[in-house]
Amino acid sequence: MDETLKCERLKSRRAWRSTSGGWNIKRDWQLYVMLLIPVVYIVIFKYIPMYGVLIAFKDFNIFQGIFKSEWVGTEMFQQLWTMQDFRRAFRNTLMLNVLDLAVGFPVPVFLALCLNELKNLKFKKISQTLLYLPYFMSWVIIGGIVYQLFSTNTGMVNQIIKAAGGEVVPFLTNKWYWVITYLFSGIWRSAGWNTIIYMAAITGVDASLYEAAEVDGAGRIRKMISITLPSIKPTIVIMLIMQVGQMMTIGFERPYVMGNNLVMDFSDVLSTFVYRLGLQNGKFSLSTAAGFFQSVVGLILISSANLISEKMGQRGIW
């Protein structure tokens, strides 16, 4: 009796874990039912309007509609590529995003680890809430504050530097310094918010691991580095992949509000470039083409990042 039961369980277990085999509706029908609604949703609301990307390949005439407008193939893309400003915007988008990633990505992780170590629960809870407040302020407001703090001659920081006998620092008027200010403002605004997902991941860490480490004599820092950090590694990897996938997109408000005429060389990105193009009819196709270009690159990026992470033994997004 026991033998047959064990056999059954083994077979079921194998079936459960099996990745091969065809459509097993009998076994999986519930899963397919679950999928049904989202799939219907996405077909209706995302795939039906998808024909809008055709605008990138047409000389869009709003009176003729998307289908009747003249097909121009890759002409829009060619036009974009010959625009000096476009190439510069492309370069700037990549550059700022890569820097954002390199500098800004570790900060929330670090903050989450520190928050986790806080013993006073009240302080912890209050800090968490206060830390993410700037995320809710629009860039227009943050930009105003950055200006008040960092403008070259009248900004507070420079006033302090001058009073201490130093030279004013062109935080916002010199394009190299501007990049630093730009990065810092991003961290300032978003680091607190980004700790949330890591805090959620940290709560999932198996407490018994800590106990075992305690027995082995590990100190606090050791525990943080060898247990907490590796335990949230899957979360970190996923967030990293997703962010790499966003390398080609950049919000409009942040570079627009923080940028100015003097630092255009670095501050003009794809979103601000499209904005400057204006939305008169002829430009609709151009701006859609720019968006399409971003999408293609983004998809390639996230697929590559995913591939790399899988090769390194981490689970990817597929």
């Binding site: 403008s151 009248t154 008027t173």
Partner: peptide, 12 residues
């Protein structure tokens, strides 16, 4: 104005 270039909305 020394920082006029930063004053995009003329608030300053």
């Amino acid at each position: 104005s020394p920082d006029f270039a930063l004053d995009k909305d003329s608030k300053q």
